[in-house]
């Protein structure tokens, strides 16, 4: 379990997440793609912390911040989905052609 192997796995997760975020029509599925990318980021942070910093606690702090970012992006994402659904009754990205309300 070298650092290279961990980072490769994380890269695969990020690639999959990017594919999902770009290819899915539904807003909620787009959010799932973003979450999968953040999953890879979290693995990178923890892998680097464990393998190349002597276990500096600041690495763990960074992982906690990544988790907070995940929570924020989910919450705001769902709020936006709800707002868009109220206005246009759609949950697909094609339903949005303007950023105006």
């Amino acid at each position: 379990m070298s650092l290279q192997a961990i980072l490769l796995v994380a890269a695969a997760l990020i690639g999959l997440g990017l594919y999902g975020a770009l290819s899915q029509k539904s807003f909620v599925m787009l959010l799932m793609g973003l979450e999968l990318m953040l999953n890879g980021v979290l693995l990178i942070v923890v892998g680097c912390w464990s393998r190349s910093t002597d276990g500096d606690p600041k690495g763990q702090l960074l992982a906690i911040i990544v988790m907070a970012v995940m929570a924020v992006d989910m919450a705001i994402g769902f709020a936006l989905v709800t707002a868009v659904y109220r206005k246009r009754q759609v949950d697909v990205i094609e339903g949005l052609t303007t950023m105006k309300h």
Binding site: L3, Q4, A10, A11, L16, L18, S23, Q24, K25, I93
Partner: peptide, 30 residues
């Protein structure tokens, strides 16, 4: 429920390839 799939696949593969190359070519501290 999928759109622009080919573009998305290319982007995903490129992201993976770029990150993997970066991992491979970097001299990671141990």
């Amino acid at each position: 429920m999928v759109h622009q799939e080919r573009f998305a696949i290319v982007a995903g593969v490129l992201a993976f390839a770029g990150l993997a190359a970066a991992v491979w070519l970097t001299d990671l501290p141990h």
